[in-house]
Computed example of a mutant assay.
Amino acid sequence: MAKVILGRYKGIRVPQNLTDKEKEDYVIEEILVHSTVKVSEKEVTERARRMAEEYALRLTQQGLSIEQYYGASNTDEKALVSKMKELAKKQLRKRMLLEEIAEKEGITATEEELDREIEKLTIRYPLGKEEIKKVMQGEEEVRLRNEIVIKKAVDFLVEQTKKCEVT
């Protein structure tokens, strides 16, 4: 059984007064309403666990520990993961939808786009472009290419809405 069955995704009408980010969110939500995107409970739980780990890391970077958070919020890891599940499901559904649209529209990441993203990474990390390229081989390159494709799919959808704005 297909995990994603796309509904209408072209010609979505959006209000003119939205910011670019609001427009992106609006059009994706509209497409999700008219599409079927099935995410397994296992996928949701795994994503929620990663989100909880990322949250713990951010706390550590701010000089706090996850244990302090648990104490202050009177909660535990299980409750935090549970709390993250709804957001995890939403993120996964959105990503799967965008991947399906990208595939249907033949949206890919070019070498030039990959190169530009690697160039951006040289600003964030104290490494040269060639060093980052070495690190980005294999799984990391696939991940970066996927991020480019997702962004291009969002841009494609927003561009489609410009033809159909409503006041």
Results as ranks from 00 to 15, higher is better:
residue 41 E to D: 12
residue 59 L to W: 09
residue 33 V to I: 10
residue 102 A to N: 06
residue 53 E to L: 07
residue 102 A to W: 13
residue 85 K to Q: 15
residue 43 E to V: 02
residue 27 V to T: 05
residue 75 T to N: 02
residue 87 L to S: 09
residue 109 A to N: 12
residue 95 R to G: 11
residue 13 R to G: 01
residue 74 N to R: 04
residue 78 K to M: 05
residue 110 T to K: 13
residue 102 A to R: 12
residue 48 A to F: 09
residue 83 K to Y: 05
residue 63 G to F: 13
residue 34 H to D: 12
residue 99 E to S: 14
residue 6 L to H: 04
residue 105 E to Y: 04
residue 61 Q to M: 13
residue 73 S to G: 03
residue 58 R to A: 14
residue 70 Y to E: 04
residue 42 K to R: 07
residue 5 I to R: 11
residue 12 I to C: 02
residue 35 S to K: 04
residue 52 A to C: 03
residue 64 L to H: 12
residue 98 L to I: 06
residue 38 K to T: 05
residue 35 S to R: 13
residue 19 T to N: 05
residue 101 I to C: 07
residue 29 E to N: 11
residue 91 Q to P: 08
residue 34 H to Q: 09
residue 30 E to I: 02
residue 32 L to S: 04
residue 67 E to G: 08
residue 35 S to D: 04
residue 70 Y to M: 04
residue 86 E to T: 14
residue 8 R to H: 03
residue 99 E to K: 15
residue 116 R to I: 05
residue 71 G to A: 10
residue 33 V to Q: 00
residue 65 S to T: 15
residue 75 T to Q: 01
residue 115 D to T: 05
residue 103 E to K: 14
residue 70 Y to Q: 09
residue 75 T to R: 02
residue 51 M to F: 10
residue 114 L to N: 05
residue 90 K to V: 02
residue 50 R to V: 12
residue 112 E to F: 00
residue 42 K to V: 01
residue 83 K to G: 06
residue 94 K to C: 02
residue 15 P to D: 04
residue 104 K to C: 02
residue 41 E to R: 12
residue 81 V to H: 08
residue 116 R to N: 15
residue 67 E to Y: 14
residue 50 R to I: 13
residue 38 K to L: 12
residue 24 E to C: 03
residue 69 Y to W: 13
residue 52 A to V: 07
residue 84 M to E: 11
residue 7 G to F: 01
residue 42 K to Y: 01
residue 58 R to H: 03
residue 57 L to S: 13
residue 68 Q to L: 09
residue 14 V to S: 04
residue 54 E to V: 11
residue 11 G to V: 00
residue 24 E to Q: 08
residue 56 A to W: 08
residue 115 D to S: 12
residue 5 I to F: 07
residue 17 N to S: 10
residue 72 A to H: 01
residue 76 D to Q: 03
residue 52 A to Q: 09
residue 7 G to C: 00
residue 71 G to W: 09
residue 65 S to E: 10
residue 111 E to L: 07
residue 45 T to S: 14
residue 89 K to Q: 15
residue 77 E to C: 08
residue 64 L to M: 10
residue 10 K to G: 01
residue 74 N to C: 00
residue 48 A to T: 02
residue 105 E to Q: 12
residue 27 V to L: 07
residue 51 M to T: 09
residue 81 V to M: 03
residue 89 K to V: 09
residue 56 A to L: 12
residue 74 N to L: 01
residue 95 R to I: 11
residue 26 Y to C: 05
residue 33 V to P: 01
residue 92 L to V: 00
residue 38 K to Y: 14
residue 80 L to W: 10
residue 60 T to N: 11
residue 112 E to M: 02
residue 35 S to F: 06
residue 72 A to G: 11
residue 56 A to F: 05
residue 25 D to W: 00
residue 70 Y to D: 02
residue 111 E to K: 08
residue 103 E to M: 04
residue 75 T to P: 00
residue 111 E to M: 11
residue 14 V to K: 02
residue 94 K to T: 07
residue 100 E to Y: 06
residue 31 I to C: 09
residue 81 V to L: 06
residue 55 Y to T: 05
residue 10 K to N: 06
residue 18 L to I: 00
residue 95 R to T: 15
residue 18 L to D: 03
residue 61 Q to T: 15
